[in-house]
Amino acid sequence: MTDHADAPQRAHTDFTEGFSYGSYLHLDTLLSAQHPLTDAHDERLFLLIHQVSELWLNLIVHELRAAMTLLDQGITDAPLKMLTRVVRAQEQLTQAWEVLKTMTPADYLQFRSAFGQASGFQSYQYRTVEFLLGNKNPVMLRPHAHRPDVHGPLAEVLAAPSLYDLTLRLLAARGLQVPEAVLHRDFTQPYTPNDEVLDAWLTVYRDTDRYWDLYELAEKLLDVEDNFRRWRFNHLTTVERTIGFKRGSGGTSGVGYLRQAVQIVLFPELWAVRTSL
C-alpha cells in the first residue's frame, strides 16, 4: 500500500510536550461548565444556549473595542472588517434563539423556578455591547454593584463615547458640521437625534464619491443595528412563546420590557437620512 502524504497515519499523535486540540481550547473546562440544577431534560439546552451566547458576546465586545480604538485614531478601513465580523457573530446569536424555541412552555416550567432571580438581564457582556453601541442607562449598572470587577469596567464604558459618538467625531474631523454640544455631550446618557447631524449625513449620502469611507462606515453601522434589532425581536418572540406575559425571572415585566427594547434606535440619523434624501 502506498503511504500517501495525506494518509491519516501520518498525522501527529504525540502530544506529551505540545498542545493538542483539546488542551489548546481547554475543552475539559469548557465541557464541564454545565451544572444543571434539576433533572429536567431541557435544562442542559437552556444552559448551553446561554453559555454559547456569552462566548459570541465576548467576541463582539472584542471586535467593537478594536474597531472603536481605530476609529478614534481616524482609521476607517480596518474597522469595517471588524464590524463585519460583529455582524456575522450577531447572526449566530440570533440563530441561537431558533434552537431554544424547541423548548416548550411545559419543558421550561420543569426547571424555571430552580435558578431563582438569575436572568439574561444581568449579563454584563450584553450590557457592555449595549453601552458600546450607545444604549446608555446608568440604572443598568445596579445589577453589578456586588461585583466591583464588573461594575468598574462597565461604568467606564458608560462614561465613554459610543461607537456612534466616535463616528460623529470622524464627520467633524472631515469638515462636516457637527454641533459641539453633540461632540462633547454627557456620554452616560443615550444619544438624542439632532437635525444638524442629519444634515451632515445628508452631505455624505449626496456625495458618496467624496465621502466614500464615511458612507461605507454608515452602512456598516446600519448592518450592526439591523442585526441587533433582529436579535431583540427573536428574544421577544422566544420569551413570549415560552412564558407568555409572565414576569421575567430577573424582575422585569418580561415581554413588555422586551417590546420596549425593540423600539430603541441607536443611530437615528442613519435611518432618517433615507427619508430626507
Rank of each mutant, 00 (worst) to 15 (best):
E156M: 09
G134F: 00
G152T: 15
Q73F: 05
F131H: 04
T242P: 09
R185T: 02
T192P: 09
V262Q: 15
D72Q: 08
F115Q: 01
R10I: 04
L70R: 11
H12G: 06
Q189S: 04
L166F: 00
L266Q: 09
A67V: 04
S23P: 02
G256R: 14
K81L: 00
A96R: 15
T237V: 07
S53L: 08
E98N: 15
A181W: 00
Y108Q: 08
I264A: 12
P153E: 07
L133T: 03
Y257T: 08
T104C: 12
W201R: 13
I243S: 12
Q110K: 15
D165R: 05
Y164W: 03
L166W: 00
L158E: 01
V178I: 14
H12N: 06
V99D: 10
L158P: 13
A218W: 05
E17H: 13
F15C: 08
F228Y: 10
Q90K: 12
F111K: 15
P161F: 02
F46I: 08
D39I: 04
K136T: 00
L70A: 12
P36R: 01
A114D: 04
R274T: 05
V265D: 03
D209Q: 05
T16F: 11
G152A: 15
T104Q: 10
T38D: 04
L133E: 01
Q110Y: 03
W212L: 12
F15S: 07
L57S: 09
L64F: 04
L59H: 09
E216I: 03
H146F: 02
T102N: 14
R88Q: 15
H235W: 05
I264C: 04
M140V: 06
A89M: 06
Y257H: 14
L221G: 15
G152L: 13
E219W: 01
A181Q: 01
R112K: 15
V129R: 05
Q260H: 07
D72C: 08
T16P: 13
I49R: 14
A173F: 01
T128C: 09
R232C: 13
E130C: 07
R44Q: 14
D39G: 14
A66W: 00
L183I: 01
T104P: 11
Y257E: 02
T128E: 01
V157E: 06
A160Q: 01
Y126P: 02
D213E: 09
E91W: 03
D226F: 08
L59E: 12
V182D: 07
H41Y: 10
T238P: 07
Q9Y: 02
E180H: 05
P161W: 00
W201Y: 10
A261N: 08
L55Q: 10
M1A: 11
Q177F: 00
E43K: 13
